[in-house]
Nucleic acid binder design. Structure first.
Lengths: 247, 247
DNA sequence: AGTATTAATGCACAAAAACGCAAAAACTTT
DNA sequence: AAAGTTTTTGCGTTTTTGTGCATTAATACT
């Protein structure tokens, strides 16, 4: 097994489990912990992962540390600025939760009129601050981690609605495998969201690109728009361009 | 669990609860209090949180919706303290919105287990911060002023559920005329809430007593508990005592 | 004031990282 | 093919880091 094979294995493991232990890897790969540590150091150097004492974490791991967050906030605001342009007066939309989505909602002009469906109480509150918007909460049991309403009820309710555009964040997005997610319950709801929308916009920071999680939400050709903080002509976005409009 | 993960967890808890106790964290995270204290010290050093005796506080706690405009916070906390005692482990409850209700939800102990239905996204979020609670949002169109979900949908959903106790705030409460409300849409939802509950608790500051609004929600004999900031033996509460339990 | 928590300090121990070094492997050059 | 060079890997040793415990100091509560 070559060094780069080993390293791509490590990356896969991290995408799958969100974290790895040096000790475990050394057993799985049948190399010394020392070698694993060196691999992790290299990957961290290249910005692929976050190294911590005892192993490493996924980069997309939500870091509450201020510096990290504020960096992300700027990128997210950039994304939000582009995403909000997709919203036309009078449209009916469906939106998911997440910090990027929150930034977008905040950028919606006060004068905007339209109808918003959402499975997120937080988005609902934020949307309700806009007097011109019709906000409809799709109820259900709140999932503790994702903070969205899940279960049978929202899924069947979603089956009965038809919206112009659905905004989804991305846990994982790959140019071949499409959108993916790690939680079963959340996956079910998001699938229902995709089904009830005519068009699908994925808005995400670029670091979530090219990663694959356990459950597939939809193939690439179902995605209509991809909004990231990068310039649309950035080379990282090239593989996506044939299937969707990159903004 | 890595140190970083533990610290993220702490941050999350603080964002959710607005405060944490070292002792509780040490149990939840299964580490010594000493370690928790060191984590808190590091996070405080990094400016993430504010360390206080016994735990830590959120640095800049604010909801997207400016809820801090509320007045008589002290009285409301007093009410909340009494109201929370009505909640027994394992109960199924239904709660309305309002600042007093918010205070009450915040006082629910972390260890409490039960199922909460609510038509308020804000309450839902606050409830969802408690790991032991099942939180079910009853969806609908958000009413801009009352910030609760209204319309036909929540009313029919409410018709299908049965809860042990319903907490309602009061716009108007009179010892002869009962509970009253001024908005038609809101009235309909609250009526449905009352219908689906075995017992009804009204929690309100005393200044709302002896006032009547356009629409009647229910007669006095439907109310089981009345919680105010006053002493139960206060003379203002006397007219209510024959119909309900005054706390 | 007195008691009970909570914080701080120093210390011990274990786990992990860093470092230097040497052997092995892969790659170059002759 | 052989020799030389570079890269990679593993091993022992030393440092550093993380954690818990005991003792003492500080702080809240009544």
């Amino acid at each position: 097994m070559f060094k780069n094979e080993r390293q791509s294995f490590i990356i896969k493991q991290i995408n799958l489990h969100n974290k790895v232990l040096s000790s475990e890897l050394s057993v799985k790969l049948n190399v010394s912990e020392d070698t694993v540590r060196r691999d992790l150091a290299e990957l961290a150097e290249a910005g692929e992962i976050i190294k911590v004492h005892g192993g490493a974490l996924s980069k997309s791991y939500h870091y509450p540390i201020q510096q990290n967050l504020s960096y992300a906030v700027e990128a997210k605001k950039e994304i939000a600025k582009k995403a909000v342009k997709l919203i036309q007066p009078g449209m009916t939309l469906l939106i998911e939760a997440g910090t990027t989505m929150l930034e977008m909602v905040r950028m919606i002009p006060d004068t905007m009129e339209g109808t918003f469906f959402t499975v997120s109480p937080l988005m609902a509150l934020e949307l309700a601050a806009h007097p011109g918007l019709n906000v409809i909460v799709i109820g259900g049991k709140i999932d503790y981690t994702s903070q969205i309403n899940i279960g049978e009820r929202p899924i069947s309710e979603l089956a009965d609605i038809r919206v112009d555009l659905c905004f989804l964040g991305a846990h994982g997005l790959d140019s071949k495998e499409g959108l993916s997610e790690s939680e079963w319950n959340v996956t079910q709801v998001k699938k229902a969201m995709i089904k009830s929308a005519s068009k699908l916009a994925v808005i995400t920071i670029s670091e979530k690109l090219n990663s694959i999680f356990k459950m597939r939400l939809c193939p690439v050709h179902n995605i209509d728009y991809l909004v990231t903080e990068l310039d649309p002509n950035d080379k990282h976005l090239k593989p996506y361009k044939k299937n969707m409009q990159v903004i």
